[in-house]
Amino acid sequence: MSRRLIAPLALVTLSILSLFVGVTEIGTGDVLRDPEARALMLTSRLPRLFAVLITGASLAIAGAIMQMLVRNRFVEPMTVGTGQGAALGVLIVTIAAPGAPLLVQMTLAAATAFGTSLGFLAIAHRMPPSQPFLVALVGLIYGGIIGAGVTFVAYQADLLQYIDIWTNGEFSGILQGRYETLWLAAAVAGLAYLAADQFSILGMGRTVSIGLGLNYGQVMLFGLAAVSLVSAMTVTIVGMIPFVGLVVPNIVSRIMGDDLRRTLPQIALSGAVLVLGADILARVLRAPYEMPVGTVLGIMGAALFLWLLYRPAPRVR
């Protein structure tokens, strides 16, 4: 069997599994016979499945783009300040205009996420490219500082209970009518795919980019905007989900290389599979209770990250 087929097969299998895992037992036949089961399927299980798939795929794509923008394999939006910036935006809206519509929340979250990512990019581009671990480390701490800032503001405004919702991703609250904005994230990720070649070139550095006639600054800003939008939508609707954007592009690039035009579909697919697997695990681990998927991915992702750090140098394809 071709290796290319593994991810699609896993996706289909896990998707079907995901539909039938939950507090209420639903058999395959019930969907056809029992209207109540069908309603549950349509209002809860299917929306959840879509949300999981979109989140996984778009976060993985955002991670891949971020790695090209920063030119470093060990960064991803959720750990280097983009996600924390988004949380800051939502927090500001919640304080300044409680009850503002989701779209307003999301817009401001995207704006702050864009600002904090720009800040990280400015720092990262000033650091020696010979020290990849340093850039990643600075990113983690930078994200941590913004996170501490968010906690500080939340404490003062007595909004601490929300922090957990934004910082620890969870799909249990996803219902019909409360996740549809995520399709926007899917659209943004799709749009980014159209610019895949530009991002690949960007990953080769400023000189090469300009030499090939790329509008360096413009592509950079577009990439950053895409990453910020995806992160903002994920954080407001699902909460932060760590490591997907980091490990998935790394593993795919290890097998297929760095041509984003070719690898982005695979990255999206693998991201969806990873988050879906984690979500199913989160549901069955302590059934009937649910774990936050952010916690499950925190463990799986950190373990994979350590493996990436200490693996032998990748062989050239």
Partner: peptide, 12 residues
Amino acid sequence: LTGVVLATLFRS
């Protein structure tokens, strides 16, 4: 970096 990631792993 190992330390920071280990700390995340332990916390999760």
